[in-house]
Write a protein that binds this DNA or RNA. Structure first.
Length: 501
RNA sequence: GGCCCCAUCGUAUAGCGGCCUAGUACGCUGCCCUCUCACGGCGGUAACACCGGUUCGAAUCCGGUUGGGGUCACCA
């Protein structure tokens, strides 16, 4: 069996030229753990590129690591993507021409290709263990970290027999070309890996199970993926994948190599990659705090990309209209919670009141039970809309409206001094015959009796009333709050606080 | 260590040879608005890592240095 030749030098390799509706991108996570914001950002950019070009997004699950993959994680991935309204054209759940889309169900396909590749001599048997490889390197004066030195490429049949006789079974390695390999990265430009900097790598375990290094490019090839947009951690493995592609082209699986685009990392504090351990990395952590999809998508888009030089709040439609991978910035981006919250707040302000009210209901839990509650929430929503950046801030701002008068608690920090009793008395008297009960009428009555009558400063006059009504230091506007609360409750709460002084 | 990637205010970015005494946003901060908190308005703060080169001209191009990151698994 002779070593294959790579007739096509990398510079003339048949890379994909797709650019319009023939674009096919994919999102292919491994279902391990909860969805990471970096992973979701990758999904978003693939999605945006597909939608922008009119191409297709394929969603495939790479569950070849039975030990780490979980069904729960898989379900979370679907949940997260749907929440953010990232949809796909082929793949999990929606089907398509290349089913199945879970690698754990594609074993027969892989086995067949492995045989074809072996028959052509593109794969060869490797018996060496990790320890032996390292020992070899030390022996030969190579840096042990250099990895495999391709020494089994031309093992004789007798040598293989000997290994088998010793009870060993071989892994399968891909024979990589002894030439430089280059590709034009969509976000980083021309990148060349010198010959020898990537070595023959294992694609099939001794037990016959193919590895990620094999199934990922294989499925991309079979599924006709034209653009591989992924994290920059995969940059170094690109030459090996291109080598595999050459082999796949040789056995007729495909006739082109996809374009690659390596997206920058999403970093945490300092200069460390945002780790799975970090709560900030968890997509659902942000959802739980009250990020809305519009806001989080907008912020995630900003991690490596921008719409224009002077605007960073935009809709997902605007993003799709403008997005191109070649505009992605190659430097790592830090996840800035403050900025994310600010963007989210802007999107909350953009929502219609009824829409916001409906989203807020989830965060209010048991507070909102009846249709009357819902009507009250809807009426109160405009009052809090410009006061929050996260839906999770809703309860602190609104709960007083849904709490029975006798169950309202007063925060110690805002308990008024005894001297304010007169203020409360005057307020009660002023409000007693306000008619109709509107915030305008309430305000003028109160201003007349407290500001003009008692000659109080607005701050001193209304502070105690705010405490009585909401029990908190921060609340929606006072007069509007009183209106929504109703005359009876308002008077009861004022009297109740007065009695406590 | 080999190989690869990255390098503009604290953060995210604009900039793709002259429009840059470097723009925008978040943050921080001063003022205004104001019943609290916000929202909004008007200001302020703060950056081209370093050294060479190319050029009439460089944040932008080239080389090197430094710093950071990744990768060298029979994980994905």
């Amino acid at each position: 069996m002779s070593a294959p030749t790579f007739s096509a030098p990398s510079s003339s390799a048949p890379f994909s030229t797709a650019s319009g509706s023939d674009v096919r991108v994919r999102f292919c996570p491994s279902p391990t753990g909860t969805p990471h914001v970096g992973l979701i950002r990758t999904a978003l950019f693939n999605w945006a590129y597909a939608r922008h070009t009119g191409g297709k997004l394929i969603f495939r699950i790479e569950d070849t690591d039975a030990a780490r993959d979980s069904e729960e994680s898989y379900l979370q991935l679907l949940d997260g993507l749907r929440w953010l309204r990232i949809d796909w054209d082929e793949g999990i759940d929606v089907g398509g021409p290349h089913e199945p889309y879970r690698q754990s169900q594609r074993t027969d396909i892989y086995l067949d290709l492995i045989e074809k590749l072996r028959a052509k001599g593109l794969l060869y048997e490797s018996f060496a263990t990790g320890e032996e490889i390292e020992a070899r390197n030390v022996e030969n004066g190579r840096d042990p970290k250099q990895g495999y030195d391709n020494f089994e490429r031309d093992l004789s049949d007798a040598q293989k027999e000997q290994y088998r006789a010793d009870g060993r079974s071989p892994a399968l390695r891909l024979r990589v070309p002894d030439t430089d390999l280059s590709f034009d990265d969509l976000v980083r430009g021309e990148i060349t890996f010198p010959a020898g900097s990537f070595t023959d790598f294992v694609v099939v375990r001794p037990n016959g199970a193919p590895l990620y290094t094999f199934v990922n490019p294989v499925d991309d090839a079979i599924m006709g993926i034209t653009h591989v947009l992924r994290g920059e951690d995969l940059l170094s493995s690109t030459p090996r994948q291109i080598a595999l592609y050459h082999a796949l082209i040789e056995i007729g699986v495909t006739d082109f190599i996809p374009r690659f685009g390596h997206l920058p990392y999403v970093m945490g504090e300092g200069n460390k990659k945002l780790s799975k351990r970090d709560p900030e990395s968890n997509l659902f952590h942000h959802r739980d705090r009250g990020f809305i999809p519009e806001g989080l998508v907008n912020y995630l888009a900003l991690l490596g990309w921008s719409l224009t030089h002077d605007r960073d709040v935009f809709s997902i439609e605007e993003m799709v209209a403008a997005f191109d991978v070649v505009d992605v910035n190659p430097n790592p981006a830090r996840f800035d919670v403050k900025k994310a919250e600010s963007i989210n707040g802007d999107h909350i302000r953009l929502l219609a009141a009824d829409d916001l009210a409906a989203r807020l209901e989830t965060y209010l839990g048991d507070l909102v039970k009846t249709d009357a509650d819902r009507a009250l929430l809807l009426a109160a929503t405009p009052l809090v809309q410009e006061r929050m950046q996260l839906l999770g801030e809703g309860p602190a701002l609104l709960s007083f409206l849904f709490t029975p008068d006798d169950a309202l608690t007063i925060d110690a920090e805002v308990m008024p001094k005894p001297e304010t009793a007169a203020t409360l008395d005057t307020a009660v008297a002023a409000l007693a015959d306000v008619e109709p009960w509107t915030h305008d009428e309430i305000e003028s009555a109160l201003r007349h009796d407290l500001i003009e009558g008692l000659e109080l400063k607005p701050r001193d006059a209304f502070g105690p009333l705010r405490t009585a009504i909401s029990g908190k230091r921060i609340s929606p506007p006072l007069f509007e709050s009183m209106e929504l609360l109703g005359k009876t409750s308002t008077l009861v709460r004022l009297a109740k606080l007065r009695a406590l002084l």
